[in-house]
Design a protein around this nucleic acid. Structure first.
Length: 669
DNA sequence: GTTCTAGAAC
DNA sequence: GTTCTAGAAC
């Protein structure tokens, strides 16, 4: 080294060390204390720090990641150290910041891995926080973020990672960083206790279970409750009482056979669900009979369990989490009477009575009806029950309605029907709760190619619906309370005006079937409903054409809808609407992404399912739906289609895909 | 699905 | 300077 020169361009090793900057990426959900951490260090530190906070970077408002990146670069260039104060829970979110750092910057992560419930309660309690994440939304958002959490790893490029699981860990980390002088360097490696490895796919249900467990002070750890039996505990569970064997005096031996056989049949067909037969008495004869037969038949004890306890307190008293419970209902679906029915209605509160009335008035022996439990219900809040399935079995009691006069041929058939209806209702409810169908075990008529496709689609489908995507579902399940824009209520569908019509006339025919989320779910058994939805759509088209014969209509489904609950679009082809604003809007109605109802019905009749198009089509260039000319942007396209009178493409003129006043097919429907 | 808005495109 | 898109947030 040229020790004689005193040029500025030469930095002694000591000086080089002193010029090192640090970028500290905070990792934690809202409410984990990221901002507090930064402020505590900055106020106590001798080192120059800049806190880059996405919540405030836009002139005090929420900014973008790009703004944060720029602010970070600027600070590092000025020789300052930087805190990246945003959630950074996913590896991808951290990567761009790590890329900014040159060899003179140390890259650290501080993981604020505090219990989710602590973060949520802090979010709820604080006022005027920069991120404005207050109130009840906090829980939803924190949960959602934690689902995708990926703990930082040294191989991402960090030289030091500090894990904090509680306030004292946080305090210690604050102290360490506060004491970090301008020329100090912290040692490399991982510090603090890393939380137990969780899969990135941790579901909200699992999260709730975890929080509840923490509150229960490790209740499950100590006892060997029936729920603590391995993987089965992760599955949606249906708790059900023995049907017809109490007040309806059905023979216990016959009933236990039917329970075990029905359950075995169901569990063979539907994977990833669990059944729990529940009885109040520990001397329960039906429980012991069923238990015996379950063992004899070699049914997986993780997937079919028997449980002694109160069906309305399975979680709070027994630690058994069941998202769905069955009610041994009466035919009038009324509260009271005694037994399980009285107990469930009482525990669920008025909400269940109201929700039940919205679904059905009476119930026939051998059938069931699933009722979503409003979140206000104590049974929902305390026990985590999302649905009650009312089921009615055969009656062998001369004092009760529909007495079968000891006819066990009839009685057994009805009881089998009751269980099979109950289990099917449960499967569709479980499917809704997990936003995907329980994986059906392949039957012999499936080829391996088809089964691969199916798996692929299921993967795609497992994405979560945002809260905004539930509006149609809520309307379908409870039309009486969502009357805005409602045009017609039928037994299996509803017709309503689209809230943001993309043309002069744009209505939706909404299926009322619980569990049918989208076109992908539509199978042969749904054909009668798809046809009645189509007919309803045509009926409304006729009405609109009588008002304005110049219109043309298409009826169809989006391949991948944004809103949950199968809905048929009935839309006039003028696309003259201020709500049609972007490329996605246009392409969702004018590419193969839009599947004409007539084709959907044909394909399901022929192949058992409808073809779906990729969401990539939504990014395609903008083309007029009549003359197929391309246009650079939406305003230009809109002014073109307002004038274009070219013939519609031949494809649309076939098979009644396009309906107009001159269309003969309208009269034949 | 919409709204909001930064910044790209013109 | 204005228009328009696209990404983030809900």
């Amino acid at each position: 080294m040229d020790s004689g020169a005193s040029s500025d361009s030469h930095i002694s090793p000591k000086e080089e060390e002193s010029s090192r900057t640090v970028m500290v990426i905070l990792v934690g959900p809202p409410g984990s204390g990221k901002s507090t951490f930064c402020e505590a260090v900055i106020s106590a530190s001798r080192r120059p720090w800049v806190r880059v906070c996405q919540d405030t970077i836009g002139n005090g408002k929420t900014g973008t990641k790009a703004q944060c990146l720029k602010a970070a670069v600027d600070a590092l260039n000025e020789g300052k150290s930087v805190f990246i104060d945003r959630c950074n829970l996913e590896r991808g979110q951290r990567a761009d910041f790590l890329k900014l750092c040159g060899s003179l910057t140390d890259m650290h992560a501080i993981v604020l891995d505090l219990p989710a419930k602590v973060c949520i309660s802090r979010c709820v309690n604080r006022t005027g926080h920069e991120g404005n994440l207050q109130g009840g939304r906090a829980a939803v958002i924190v949960n959602k973020m934690l689902q995708n959490k990926e703990a930082p790893n040294l191989n991402e490029g960090f030289s030091r990672i500090t894990f904090c699981q509680n306030d004292s860990d946080v305090k210690e980390a604050i102290k360490t960083y506060s004491e970090l002088g301008p020329s100090d360097k912290l040692s490399s490696g991982e510090f603090g206790q890393k939380s137990k490895k969780e899969s990135g796919q941790q579901s909200i249900m699992k999260f709730f279970k975890k929080s509840a467990r923490e509150e229960n002070n490790q209740k499950e750890k100590e006892g060997t409750s029936s729920s603590g039996n391995g993987a089965g505990n992760e599955f949606p569970t249906l708790a059900f009482p023995s049907i017809s064997t109490a007040d309806f005096q059905f023979n216990l031996d016959k009933a236990s056979d039917i329970i075990v056989e029905s359950a075995q049949d169901f569990l063979k067909r539907v994977d990833n669900v669990r059944l729990a037969l529940v009885d109040l008495s520990d001397k329960s004869r039906i429980i012991s009979l069923v238990r015996e037969k379950v063992v004899k038949k070699g049914i997986d004890s993780n997937r079919f369990i028997t449980f002694v306890g109160d069906i309305t307190m399975l979680y709070s008293k027994g630690g058994l989490r069941c998202t769905v419970i069955a009610n041994a209902a009466n035919w009038r679906l009324k509260p009271g009477g005694g037994g399980v029915n009285a107990a469930i209605f009482k525990a669920a509160g008025e909400a269940l009575d109201i929700a039940t009335k919205g679904r059905a008035e009476t119930l026939n022996p051998g059938s069931s009806v699933a009722v979503p439990l409003p979140s206000t219900s104590p049974l929902y809040q305390r026990e985590g029950v999302t649905h009650v399935i009312h089921v009615l079995g055969p009656n062998m009691n001369p004092q009760r309605p529909n007495y079968l006069q000891n006819d066990y041929t009839k009685g057994c058939k009805i009881l089998r029907d009751a269980y099979s209806s109950l289990f099917e209702s449960f499967a569709s409810v479980a499917c809704l709760e997990r936003n995907k169908k329980p994986k059906l075990v392949e039957l012999k008529d499936k080829t391996s190619g088809e089964s691969k496709n199916k798996e692929k689609r299921e993967e795609v489908k497992s994405r979560n619906w945002g809260s905004w995507a539930l509006a149609l579902y809520n309307t379908a399940m409870d039309p009486e309370n969502h009357k805005d824009g409602l045009l017609e209520i039928a037994d299996d569908f509803i017709v309503l005006n689209d809230l943001y019509p993309k043309a002069r006339k744009h209505v939706l025919v909404l299926s009322r079937l619980n569990g049918l989320d989208c076109l992908e779910d539509a199978k042969r058994e749904h054909l009668p409903m798809l046809k009645s939805m189509h007919s309803a759509g045509v009926k409304w088209v006729k009405k609109f054409l009588s008002e304005d014969p110049s219109l043309h209509f298409r009826l169809g489904y989006h391949s991948v809808p944004s809103m949950r609950q199968l809905h048929l679009h009935v839309i006039s082809q003028d696309f003259d609407s201020p709500s049609l604003k972007n490329k996605k809007h246009w392409n969702s109605f004018n590419t193969a992404f839009f599947r004409d109802s007539v084709d959907v019905i044909d394909e399901i009749e022929e192949h058992g399912s409808a073809k779906l198009s990729s969401e990539k089509l939504l990014e395609m260039e903008l083309r007029c739906h009549r003359c197929k000319s391309a246009h650079p942007n939406i305003p230009k396209l809109k002014s073109h289609i307002a004038k274009c009178r070219a013939c519609y493409p031949p494809h649309l003129l076939q098979n009644s895909r396009l309906l107009s006043a001159s269309n003969n097919d309208l009269n034949t429907n």
